[in-house]
Simulated scan of single mutants.
Amino acid sequence: MSRAAIRYAKAVLDQANEANISEVVFGDMKSVEATLAGSKELRNVLQSPVIKGEDKKQALLKIFEGNSEVTKGLIQILTSNKRINLLGGVASSFINLYNDSKGVKTAHVTTAVPLSAELENQVLAKVKEMTGSENVTIINKVDESILGGFILRVGDLQYNASIANQLGNLKREFSKSL
């Protein structure tokens, strides 16, 4: 996350808190983040130096027309400051800042296959053990190279229970004993 994106996100959160609509803007930012994550074309448009800022702004305002005035204001400010390419980073930073302010911990879980309910409960238990927090959001990323198990990251804490990691540990043990 760039420092500029974090600064914009803090300003938007302050503005949303003042207007008593931080929950609404949180929903907007999740929508912005998901839309950008799901559309390579839109990300390319925002990064393109060829497309005029005004065209980018009009497209975004049309896409997010159902969102709050705070979110539309963010799009306008980013466009006028020629920083519209930061929109995704601002949305992600806003989500993190909002969650922090509400005491919600975000756990990034990497698994070889999509999380089952049973594995999700194991992960939640581990997060509670690591952080002491009951309020947890899980973001699952699938990476087949870990073979099985999971890698859990909460803030700057990491717990690696992947089979690939365990095999690596075994390999190191064997090479030491030879």
Rank of each mutant, 00 (worst) to 15 (best):
H108M: 06
G155P: 01
V32D: 02
T79Q: 04
Q166T: 12
V25G: 12
A161I: 06
S68W: 00
L78E: 01
I63F: 05
T111G: 05
A59C: 11
N81Y: 08
S92R: 12
A37L: 09
V50P: 00
N17G: 12
E173P: 00
G89E: 00
K10T: 11
L115W: 04
D100T: 08
D28A: 11
R153M: 11
R83K: 12
Q122F: 02
N99T: 07
K57C: 11
L119W: 04
G148W: 01
R7C: 03
E41Q: 13
T106M: 02
G148F: 04
N165C: 08
P114Q: 01
A9W: 00
S68V: 00
E65M: 07
L157Y: 09
H108T: 10
V127R: 02
T111K: 04
A19Q: 15
E54C: 11
K176V: 10
Q122A: 07
I151R: 15
A11R: 09
I151E: 10
K141D: 13
N99W: 09
V24T: 15
V24R: 14
I51L: 05
I6V: 15
N160L: 03
S175G: 03
N81F: 10
K40C: 02
K72A: 14
S39R: 09
R7D: 07
N20L: 02
N20P: 01
I151K: 15
R43D: 08
I151N: 14
G27L: 03
M130E: 04
R172H: 12
T111H: 05
R172Y: 10
V90H: 00
N160Y: 01
L115N: 09
I75Q: 06
